[in-house]
Computed example of a mutant assay.
Amino acid sequence: MTKEEKSVVIDSLAEQLQTYPHFYIADIEALNAGQTAALRRKCFESDVKLVVVKNTLFTKALEKVEKADADLVKVLEGPTSIMFTNVAKAPAVLIKEFRKTSDKPVLKAAFAEGCVYVGDNQLEALCNIKSKEELVADIVALLQSPAKNVISALQGSAGQKIAGLVKTLESRNN
């Protein structure tokens, strides 16, 4: 591969690192052609972009976009594939589902929701990760809950009692 070709690959990877907020580094070695095709199909269906990369070129792309975390660079050994995604937990769910029929892919590391996860043992945590939007929705629901309870009480029989108490207090003041 010439220097110009390497530069094009590095620029392409850097562009994808900037386009997609989350990425997973996985080992898909030893998957046969049929399994690899099935994995690629599942990735396409889940809106996950799967790319096989050379470790040195990916390291340079990480450095270019200033995401070269020491833990991420450390796992770049042996065959490496990158799963780019807009939804943080999509690749984790995909890997977990795919491993019901195969030992691979093995998670090396992930960059999700601004955090670095290293090792295959982090797969379950990544499956349960919530997006920023999901967390905001949970907080809004929690904040609305007490207000809904008060409104419900006011609309029900308790509300009639409260209204009666207010009328009684008003009549005493007059």
Rank of each mutant, 00 (worst) to 15 (best):
V65A: 08
L57T: 05
I82K: 06
K74Y: 02
A38D: 03
E77M: 07
S46L: 06
E29N: 02
A68G: 00
A33I: 08
C43Q: 07
I25E: 12
K64I: 04
A88H: 08
T80G: 13
A70L: 14
V51D: 14
K74A: 14
G34L: 07
V48R: 07
I95W: 12
Q35N: 06
T85H: 05
I28F: 11
M83H: 08
V75Q: 10
A90F: 02
K54S: 10
V93H: 11
Y24H: 05
G78K: 02
V93A: 14
L72H: 08
V52N: 13
Q35L: 09
N86K: 11
A26Y: 00
M83F: 07
A90Y: 07
F44M: 14
K67S: 00
A38Y: 02
K89R: 15
S46G: 08
K89I: 11
K60T: 12
I95C: 14
F58P: 12
L94A: 07
V53N: 13
K60C: 08
R40G: 01
R40N: 04
L57H: 08
D27E: 11
E66A: 09
A61I: 01
L39C: 00
D27M: 09
T56M: 12
V48D: 15
N86S: 12
V87F: 03
F84Y: 09
Y24L: 03
T56L: 14
N55Q: 02
Q35W: 04
